[in-house]
Simulated assay, not measured.
Amino acid sequence: MRALSRTTFGRAALVLLVFALGLGLARAGAEDIRGPVTNLPLPRFVSIKAAEANVRRGPSLTHRIDWVFKRRNLPVEITAEHGHWRRVRDRDGAGGWVHYALLSGVRYVIVTSEMLDLLAKPEEDARVMARLEGGVVAQLGACEPFWCRIEAGGFKGWAPKSALWGVKADEIRE
């Protein structure tokens, strides 16, 4: 058996170290990415707090307003942070920069299916409590692996996550 020289051994160790780090980075998902300002996960869902929220091209008041969110409690996804500004996108992928004071951590979702049965329990054959149309904004409650409890128009019940935008597929909430 041939002995390895220090140089060869050092290179082999370096290759193994880089490989191990690469595996660790590959395993690190989006959940491990943190905002540089808040240290909160990116991306993450929040909601529009104000009745109107200007969406700008860049993270300052000097940047042009591209459009305005005109729906309070609308869920949006934060994808980046810069000072007091958050880059957000809506369910259609449209977005821009919004001042953090116009955002809330209170979670809401949008019904994405044409018609959604709100159920008494997180079971497909549970009693229907109400029917929600597509586009309805509902407050988000607890979430299990495939179901979330939501509230809209005075009605509370369970809905499949797959029919909601504003909650991650693997998100669990108490």
Rank of each mutant, 00 (worst) to 15 (best):
L74W: 14
E31S: 14
C143V: 05
Q139I: 07
V68T: 14
A126K: 00
Y108K: 07
E77C: 13
L21A: 15
R72F: 09
A94Q: 14
V137Y: 08
S47V: 03
L16V: 10
L17S: 12
L21P: 01
E81R: 10
R149E: 12
A26W: 11
G95C: 05
G29H: 04
L119D: 10
H84M: 14
R127N: 02
C148K: 07
D117M: 02
E124M: 11
A138V: 01
L25W: 14
L140T: 09
L119K: 15
P59D: 08
A53F: 10
A120E: 11
F69M: 09
F69W: 15
G134N: 09
V137S: 04
A126N: 09
L61V: 08
M129T: 12
V76A: 04
G24M: 07
G29S: 15
V15K: 00
S113H: 00
E123V: 01
L116W: 03
T79K: 14
L103R: 04
R44Q: 04
S47Q: 10
R149V: 02
V18S: 07
A12D: 13
E114P: 00
G96R: 03
G96M: 03
R149L: 07
G58F: 06
A13E: 01
G58S: 02
H63Y: 15
V55Y: 00
F146G: 08
P75Y: 08
E124N: 12
L132Y: 09
E31H: 14
V37P: 01
H84V: 06
Y100C: 05
L21V: 05
K70I: 05
L25D: 01
V106R: 13
G35E: 01
A53L: 12
P75V: 09
E77G: 04
I110P: 01
F146T: 15
A30L: 08
Y108V: 02
Y100L: 02
F19S: 13
N54D: 14
V55A: 02
E77N: 08
G135E: 06
T62K: 14
T112Y: 01
L61S: 11
L102W: 06
A20D: 06
V55K: 05
I78L: 11
D66E: 13
G96D: 06
P145K: 15
M129Q: 09
V46A: 12
L42A: 02
G22M: 03
N54A: 13
V88A: 08
G135L: 13
G141Q: 12
G29N: 11
K49G: 04
T62C: 05
V109C: 00
P122E: 10
D125W: 12
R71E: 13
W97I: 10
S60A: 13
E133C: 01
L102S: 05
H82C: 10
H99I: 11
W147P: 05
L140D: 11
A120G: 08
M115E: 10
Y108H: 15
R89Y: 03
L14A: 15
R64N: 03
H63Q: 05
R86M: 11
V46P: 08
L102V: 01
D32Y: 10
E124G: 04
P145Y: 06
R44E: 04
V88T: 07
L42W: 11
L116C: 03
L119Q: 09
E133M: 07
K121G: 00
S60V: 11
L132K: 04
